[in-house]
Nucleic acid binder design. Structure first.
Lengths: 212, 212
DNA sequence: ATCGGGCTACGCAGATTTGCGTAATTTCAA
DNA sequence: TTGAAATTACGCAAATCTGCGTAGCCCGAT
């Protein structure tokens, strides 16, 4: 161990912050070089000459959250790696964080071992994501209008698919061996049920529900 | 260490398989209890009474691939955990594998340390995904018609968005303070450029390219 | 300075959608 | 078995889309 890993800690809850600090100080290879209660304070510390290897940022913070803080860090202090912590098991948040340039992502319910592992990996220049994070990414995106889909009859779903493919009532009628007028009726019933504006709404719904 | 972790190894390339076996036997807490050249052989070994804790399955195998083998294992030998290995950095494959019930997923370029970590975690009942796997999940899905989007002028994209929201030419014209006929012209030009069938195609394109 | 591309606008005819009805048959559950 | 929902079908008028064309204006590039 040539040198300790210097960490800057940011969390808006003092108790949580102090708790983390105590935990981190049990690790003999880390040194906490600063504390901040929000993203703005993090930036100020860095501007005042703090030189941590890693910024350990809570996402939920007032004034400036962890995401915006990451952006600011990557703008002006590229050498500082970021590990983001959060309570929210939110797929989009993870994606956004990685896009902003974080090197690691953990949920707050991880073990000290995992936090330790993350710090060491990130200090080496690797990335680290906890298993929980990966599982969150694998969870299929929640579909808000799934209940609406069950409102539709089998036939209506069939027709919805064809409409979404750009076929006209006439074409659909030929394909299903029914009158084009019947197709119209179905289409209109679907529009009623889904309360969407016309064909555009139907296609949007179809795409979102992966009916193609 | 009360007992060694028993592993069943499956890869269709004998050299690779033997290589893995040699690596695994360097770990004092594992014991290789069987080898198979494809998924079918894995199942046969299990039927013949093999009782591994973990099946380490290559994805690419003839006769029966790792995914189908996982499905079969989870059907009849629920106690056997699966770690899948592959050369393909493919998001959909990871998702499919997890859906089938694998406990771990690694790419073949991982280190022995990571493989070791994965085995121990999975043996404990946890999941394990390598950092590479997680990064693959975070990679945005490649968008095949991105080049087409650049064909459209700013104005056309603006109108495409509004069309996709279900507005009529008249409504769009009012909103943009231009003639509805002009909107028609733009819409038709877009349909020409994208070579899609009518409004339905426009909305599909818009949704896929996240213009909403 | 000329030329092409983007933006604007209009005409017209035919196809299609939309919004309002009505209604017969089937099917499935109460 | 009785009734509700699904599926089928039709009418009609207004609005809209589609596919064809033309054309003036502005701006940036050659």
């Amino acid at each position: 161990m040539e040198q300790k890993i210097k960490i800057l800690l940011a969390d808006d809850h003092q108790l949580v912050r102090k708790g983390f600090r105590a935990l981190l100080e049990e690790l003999d290879f880390v040194e906490v070089v600063g504390e901040a209660a929000n993203g703005k304070e993090v930036i100020q510390l860095l501007r005042n000459g703090a030189k941590p290897n890693i910024a350990l940022l809570d996402y939920e913070m007032p004034v400036m959250n962890g995401l915006d803080a990451t952006e600011a860090i990557k703008q002006d202090f590229l050498g500082v790696k970021v590990i983001m912590l959060t309570m929210l098991q939110n797929k989009e948040l993870v994606q956004a964080a990685v896009a902003k340039g974080v090197s690691g992502f953990l949920f707050k319910n991880t073990s000290l071992e995992e936090l330790s592992e993350a710090i060491q990996r990130v200090a080496k220049g690797d990335n680290y994501f906890s298993t929980e994070v990966t599982l969150t990414l694998l969870k299929p995106t929640h579909n808000p209008d799934a209940p609406l889909l069950s409102l539709l009859s089998d036939r209506e779903i069939e027709i919805l698919k064809l409409v979404a493919q750009g076929l006209s009532s006439t074409e659909i009628g030929q394909q299903l061996f029914i009158s084009p007028r019947t197709v119209d009726t179905h289409r209109n019933n679907i529009i009623q049920k889904l309360e969407v504006p016309g064909i555009a709404g139907l296609v949007q719904f179809a795409v979102r529900n992966k009916l193609l």
